[in-house]
């Protein structure tokens, strides 16, 4: 549904995108992970017909984004990372404006708007002025706006940025509903747990290069010879931290008081040796085991050394 071939974007000497090759199948949710300035928004703007690529090709639904932008816009809903609203319009008027901008016949609009407001849990705010809505509500209204022409593809650039935890959960629930409706979704975020449950596939982008892409197991930390480990202690935390930090096979120790999480690149025998070292130093260990990896671990493991 979405494909890019050697997509490159340069701003003078700065290369914002460097030969990005993406392939997203119909009905999949693809998470685009990367830090700020990695090239996520640039890729999304090219796919949304808002920016031209310096070289390479991009297709949405089989249409070339540069040669057939009108066809792309028919099947695409785009939500930018930051967007404004029209101050003096009510929520229904706001959606009505975009529905008419997408040539939806007037007779169909009121039912459509009611359905969309219900989908994003804003039915009770239908007659409120858009400017009076909270940030989370505006984001949800923005998502409803993307859906007025029932697009097959949604490109959502950091839809949950700046939202409080509750609003983030609400947004995630709505995205799950859209996933259930069979929409193809390209969603970006630099806040990784946001995407963890949602995505069928992920792509990690850093400094304009797509450095990993595939299903979550395919790009998992395991495949790179790294395991995520967790150690819990009930005392002598300083000693435990010192042992872990000084071990050459331990990376990225995350100290949460009496609970340590870290990347381990050694063999199972070497794990045994690490545990013995902790016991020998009289650290009261209550838990020493592999931990469930999360997207943050994947991202950190994959991007290790890319910046250099």
């Amino acid at each position: 549904m979405i494909q890019t071939h050697d997509l490159t974007k340069r701003y003078g000497k700065f290369e914002a995108l460097n030969s990005v090759n993406l392939s997203i199948e119909k009905g999949k949710v693809y998470g685009f992970i990367g830090p700020n300035g990695a090239g996520k928004t640039t890729t999304m703007m090219i796919l949304s017909t808002l920016l031209s690529a310096s070289s390479g090709k991009a297709y949405v639904g089989g249409y070339d984004v540069e040669k057939e932008p009108k066809d792309v816009r028919h099947i695409l809903g785009y939500m930018p990372d930051f967007f404004g609203v029209y101050d003096n319009l009510k929520a229904t008027e706001y959606l009505d404006f975009y529905a008419s901008a997408y040539n939806i016949p007037q007779k169909n609009r009121s039912a459509l708007i009611a359905d969309l407001l219900e989908l994003v849990n804003l039915s009770n705010k239908a007659d409120s002025y858009v400017d009076h809505l909270s940030r989370g509500m505006k984001q949800r209204l923005g998502l409803a706006r993307c859906l007025v022409h029932s697009p097959e593809v949604l490109i959502l650039d950091e839809p949950a940025s700046g939202l409080d935890p509750r609003a983030r959960i609400e947004m995630r629930e709505i995205l799950k509903k859209l996933q259930g409706l069979g929409k193809t979704i390209l969603i970006s975020s630099h806040i990784l747990p946001e995407l963890a449950e949602l995505c069928d596939e992920i792509g990690v982008i850093e400094k304009g290069r797509l450095i990993a892409s595939g299903s979550v197991p395919e790009v998992s930390v395991d495949t790179r010879g790294i395991s995520i480990m967790q150690v819990k202690v009930i005392g002598r935390e300083e000693v435990a931290e010192q042992i872990l930090s000084s071990d050459p096979l331990v990376r990225r120790v995350d100290n949460k008081g009496n609970h340590f999480r870290f990347h381990y690149i050694g063999s199972p025998e070497e794990k045994v040796y690490l545990l013995q070292k902790l016991i020998a130093a009289e650290v009261p260990v209550t838990h020493f085991a592999d931990s469930q990896e999360n997207l943050e671990d994947v991202f950190l493991a994959i991007t290790e050394g890319v910046g250099n």
């Binding site: 703007m45 949304s48 017909t49 808002l50 009108k70 816009r73 028919h74 695409l76 785009y78 930018p80 930051f82 967007f83 404004g84 609203v85 029209y86 975009y98 901008a101 997408y102 040539n103 706006r145 022409h149």
Partner: peptide, 13 residues
């Protein structure tokens, strides 16, 4: 300035 132009340009207008 109010960040609505890009959205407008992705519509059928």
């Amino acid at each position: 300035e109010r960040q609505t132009l890009n959205i407008l340009l992705t519509t059928h207008l």
